[in-house]
Write a protein that binds this DNA or RNA. Structure first.
Length: 392
DNA sequence: TCTGGGGTCCTAGGACCC
DNA sequence: TCTGGGGTCCTAGGACCC
């Protein structure tokens, strides 16, 4: 017979990027630390709790953060490091349940229903929390609830190092009192519209009667949000979701806007290289190639091309990237460029173990890229040479 | 608060096929 | 010949999350 209630854990790594850096280097532990761009255009992805005492928050620009806390140390984002700790995290979780869904790089859902008879879930949560902290210096908050939505909301209630149980009967006191913008799925566009309807808390959403107005704001998702606000969520924890990437991308905002064609190409080349390296590391092949261009007025275009074959070949992919850019050149200076691949599937076993340096490619493709590289060197080589000579 | 970089999911129109 | 309906894939844009 099926149990009446499921037991779902949502486990959230606190200040994850900053915690990784502190785990790597003890000296960072007690100083205010932010992660993000330190240049003029940087914003902080996250900050440790020492820094947060100064009022520093994620999303804040670095200049403002430095003003609030002049001693703030800002480290650049290092996704390779975060992916390493993310794997450690999920490996440890896998000791406790076979049913784990990756929510993102720093959060996971565990279905613990099967364990409930044998042990106290709260004790298990405490053990997981202690182990992550003691063995890996990773602080987590844990939400325990009968479904994924409530578990997610619960883990957010007490941070850092909190454990919060949110049962159906606790909804009125613990969920409905929360501001509507804290509800998972309500973002900065939807929130002001709900506020116009007088909906300020999750409880207000439950009590709201005019379904027609609600539909104007929430579209087809009205009943989904109402259900969740009422603590109803029948989604299953699905271990295979998010295990394989659906896209892999790399983008960069430049400290000085890009104006020159060759400069843009050299950046696109670099981004493409990073994407293909990660595509290869993931043993995947891609069918769709996408570029993103953000101009200095913040307008943005995305252009994509779906091939009629799958590839993990750098030259093939870069050629499409360049073509997409050539076909869509604008007049405005460029602030950000991005390259991504999607429509992924696992590469057909190990027939084509490829890296950038020995990738098979037609000689014309190869020559073309080499030609571009030479052009870039001609354009920017002078600076590099001068720099090198100064040193001597 | 002049606004990062990694992603997922959804919508809507058009092409194309039967 | 004035004009179907269903399905799938591609493209572009946007909302949202961490």
């Amino acid at each position: 017979m099926e149990k009446k209630y499921r037991i779902i854990f949502h486990i959230d790594l606190n200040a994850f990027f900053a915690s990784c850096e502190m785990a790597e280097d003890e000296k960072l532990k007690n100083i205010p630390l932010g992660i993000g761009g330190s240049r003029d255009r940087g914003v902080l992805t996250t900050a440790n709790y020492v820094a947060r005492k100064f009022g520093i928050k994620s999303g804040m620009n670095s200049f403002e953060a430095k003003r609030l806390c002049p001693n703030l140390l800002i480290l650049p984002v290092n996704f390779d490091l975060y992916r390493k700790y993310s794997n450690i995290f999920f490996n440890l979780l896998s000791e406790y349940s076979d049913t784990i869904e990756k929510g993102s790089i720093d959060e996971g859902y565990l279905d613990m229903t099967d364990l409930s008879e044998e042990v106290n879930p709260l004790e298990i949560a405490e053990e997981i929390q202690e182990r992550l902290l003691n063995e890996y210096k990773l602080p987590v908050s844990i939400g325990i609830a009968p479904n994924m939505f409530l578990a997610k909301m619960a883990s957010d209630i007490l941070k850092p190092l909190g454990i919060t149980v949110l049962r159906k009967r606790d909804i009125k006191e613990k969920l409905w009192v929360l501001p509507i913008e804290d509800m998972f799925g309500i973002g900065k566009k939807t929130y002001p519209n709900l506020k116009l309807l007088g909906i300020e808390t999750i409880g207000d959403l439950v009590a709201y009667k005019d379904g027609r107005k609600l539909k104007l704001v929430l579209g087809n998702r009205v009943s989904e949000f109402i259900d969740k606000a009422n603590g109803i969520d029948n989604r299953k924890v699905e271990p295979h979701r998010y295990v394989e990437y659906k896209s892999i991308g790399n983008s960069s905002t430049y400290s000085v806007d890009l104006q020159e064609y060759q400069e843009v190409l050299s950046k696109l080349l670099k981004l493409s290289k990073n994407v293909v390296e990660r595509l290869n590391a993931d043993d995947s092949v891609a069918k769709t190639i996408n570029i993103q261009v953000r101009y200095n007025d913040f307008s943005q275009i995305n252009r994509s091309k779906t091939l009629d074959f799958y590839t993990d070949n750098f030259f093939e992919i870069y050629q499409v990237v360049e073509q997409l850019y050539d076909d869509n050149q604008g007049d405005l200076p460029i602030r950000l460029l991005g390259v991504s691949v999607s429509n992924l599937k696992p590469s057909a076993s190990n027939f084509r173990q490829i890296n950038i340096f020995n990738a098979p490619a037609s000689s014309t493709q190869e020559e073309k890229v080499i030609h571009i590289l030479n052009n870039i060197n001609e354009t920017y080589g002078e600076k590099i040479i001068k720099k090198g000579m100064k040193k001597r």
